[in-house]
């Protein structure tokens, strides 16, 4: 049985007070609770402060390009159906630079767990508006305030009926750990958008701002009720729901490939007799 110690303890490059500290704590708790050993887990990330997560955790890790974590994770999933794959990155990487991949990932229902550290700002590049920044959010790059409407990732995900859609809050690590643990059991894409204050660059959506607004979704909410999930997903402002919005029953993307039932592709051979027959058809 894996323990918290197996996942290690590392010095980080994060600001003191950053929400990432409790997210990593929640992630480790969830991994241990799920009975996963580090060598069974693959963390795939892009670029940004959140995307440094794999460096602070003992497990397999592919820290790729900004915005491209989901395609890399998709490739790894399609190569090895046995790995537990977690995609972890920020709102800019996941919804901005990687926006097209996010939409395609939702359509595929690719079977990975996607954790998005959503602090509504670019941290690594020091404070520009992100795809989830509120309208009018003032930065040095948007001195008149952000003109664009914020992206609603949860509504997009519920809209595509992926397998699991939830929202967590960095300040509620135990609750978040529970969400992650459930997400790790899901077949198909599990998205958890995680509200996370940025102490250095987001002076609007602060810990106190979130604390005043968040509430736990009523246990009576039926997460298989699509209309109800969609309605909840619209709610972001004076009140912000936390918890599981939607549990769908869509087929996981990798289940479309019979070859994956035989396990990792690296362990599978090449049938030269079959290839010879194929070649012989070119006449």
């Amino acid at each position: 049985m894996a323990s918290l110690e197996d996942y290690g303890e590392f010095e980080t490059a994060w600001c003191p007070g950053c929400g990432n500290f409790s997210i990593i704590k929640a992630l480790k708790q969830a991994l241990v609770k799920s009975g996963l050993a580090p060598h069974q887990v693959l963390l795939v990330s892009g670029i940004g402060q959140a995307a440094k997560m794999p460096h602070y955790l003992r497990c397999n890790c592919f820290n790729g390009l900004h915005g491209r974590a989901l395609p890399a994770a998709t490739g790894a999933r399609l190569a090895n159906p046995e790995l537990k794959i977690i995609v972890e990155s920020g709102d800019g990487c996941s919804y901005g630079e990687g926006g097209n991949h996010f939409l395609a990932g939702l359509r595929r229902n690719i079977d990975v767990t996607m954790l998005v550290h959503d602090n509504q700002v670019y941290g690594l590049t020091k404070g520009q508006a992100s795809p989830t920044s509120g309208e009018g959010f003032v930065t040095k790059a948007q001195p008149q305030g952000a003109y664009s409407k914020p992206f609603n990732p949860l509504a997009a995900a519920v809209g595509q009926r992926i397998s699991f859609v939830a929202r967590g809050f960095a300040a509620e690590a135990d609750h978040l750990a529970g969400l992650i643990a459930e997400a790790l059991t899901v077949r198909g894409l599990a998205l958890i958008d995680i509200l996370q204050p940025c102490v250095s660059f987001n002076k609007v959506n602060t810990f106190a701002w979130y604390k005043e607004r968040v509430y736990h979704i009523d246990p009576a909410h039926d997460a298989s009720d699509w209309q109800a999930a969609m309605k909840l997903a619209q709610e972001f402002g004076e009140r912000i729901p936390l918890g599981v919005f939607w549990r769908g029953g869509r087929m996981a993307f990798s289940d479309h490939f019979p070859v994956l039932q035989a396990g990792p592709l690296a362990r599978q051979g090449t049938d030269y007799a079959a290839l010879n027959e194929i070649m012989r058809k070119f006449v």
């Binding site: 592919f62 190569a79 090895n80 990792p264």
Partner: peptide, 29 residues
Amino acid sequence: AREMGVVTEQAEDEISAINMALGAAYAGA
């Protein structure tokens, strides 16, 4: 692909295609 045990995917763009290939190759395909 089915006869030869190959996984194929039409990606959303070429950026995705090569990153998928790299993720798969990292994992041994």
